[in-house]
């Protein structure tokens, strides 16, 4: 694949395997920078990323959905349309076949390619620290995988952590050689102390966006105003992808008897009698709650994917996200 800068100059394709220690088959050494948390991005995870790399060696057109095409017409390798010749146009763009037929001069128009910024918003609220497997860990790994795909596609990748009332954004990066920096940035995301106002943090993140790109929100949406988060992010004009991550314990709680549930963020207490009827009612409510997000996302032309934190990463990337057309 090739990529053009905003000046319309071709750039040489950068092999996605260059300058990376995770290339190739057979024996290799994994070099982990100090910033990468080995508990998050361990050897097994990195091998999963290799699979993504190998699969991406096959021609992939388009990369992340909706992230590449520009509405502008410019000079590139992809023909788009004709216009009348004007004095000063590049004669190399004249279509002589059309002239032979119509004895009129027309210039070919090509699609203008622009680089896309993919912003990975990782919810770092206290609720993300729970679950088996931990939701935040899963979010980091999913973000790493998506970021790696973007880097391999020469997109800009920016990581932002939502905690408290703000979004802590790291500098954007481009190129597949930046994978370890991406991993380091993700490793550095820590769970927030105290409650998180997801709406405020999302609003802050939205304000940090430049231009239209892709925003991937990785969150459990366990906020009373989570629907406003979606609205805020969708209003930025960027393409919004919501990965709604919940742990298996939250999807199918195994409670029994009389319990007092304590909120990990707010400390709020709720007394329940966990019998079959209560568990069934919880599941129904959960399903309706997620359906509400799905409807809202559809209305805002966003993509919504509900996930369990125990989903296999490769299955997530190559099956679920492709099935939902998040990945092409």
């Amino acid at each position: 694949m090739t990529q053009r800068s905003g000046l319309g100059q071709e750039a040489t394709s950068v092999p996605v395997a260059a300058a990376s220690a995770v290339v190739g088959a057979g024996t290799r050494q994994i070099f982990l920078p100090n910033e990468v948390d080995p508990t998050v991005f361990d050897e097994a995870f990195l091998r999963q990323l290799e699979r993504l790399l190998l699969l991406m060696r096959s021609p992939v057109r388009g990369g992340l959905k909706g992230g590449r095409r520009s509405v502008k017409r410019g000079q590139s390798v992809e023909f788009a349309d004709y216009r009348d010749y004007s004095m000063g146009d590049d004669l190399r763009q004249l279509d002589w076949n059309v002239y032979a037929r119509l004895e009129k001069l027309f210039v070919k128009l090509f699609i203008e390619e622009e680089d896309v910024t993919i912003t990975l918003l990782v919810d770092a609220s206290a609720s993300m620290a729970s679950g088996h497997p931990q939701k935040l860990l899963f979010a980091k790994r999913a973000a790493a995988a998506l970021g790696y795909i973007g880097l391999a596609s020469e997109d800009r990748i920016a990581v932002s952590a939502l905690s408290g009332r703000i979004a802590r954004r790291r500098a954007a990066m481009r190129g597949s050689g930046r994978i370890f920096r991406l991993l380091a940035d993700l490793s550095a995301i820590a769970v927030a102390d105290g409650p998180t106002d997801l709406v405020a943090a999302a609003r802050h993140a939205a304000a940090q966006l430049h231009g239209r790109g892709v925003v991937v929100l990785l969150s459990d949406l366990l906020d009373p105003a989570a629907d406003r988060v979606i609205r805020e992010l969708a209003a930025t004009g960027s393409e919004l992808i919501i990965l709604h991550i919940l742990s298996p314990d939250e999807l199918d709680p195994a409670f029994e008897g009389d319990l007092r549930l304590v909120d990990s963020e707010t400390g709020e207490r709720v007394d329940i009698t966990a019998d079959l009827a209560t568990i069934d009612a919880y599941r129904e409510r959960l399903t309706a709650w997620k359906a509400g997000f799905a409807d809202l996302a559809a209305k805002r032309r966003a993509s919504y994917v509900d996930l369990s934190s125990d989903v296999n990463l490769a299955d997530l990337m190559f099956s679920q996200l492709r099935r939902r057309r998040v990945l092409g």
Partner: peptide
């Protein structure tokens, strides 16, 4: 018995 949950 008390049980800590991500969110109530």
């Amino acid at each position: 018995d008390e049980a800590v949950v991500p969110s109530t």
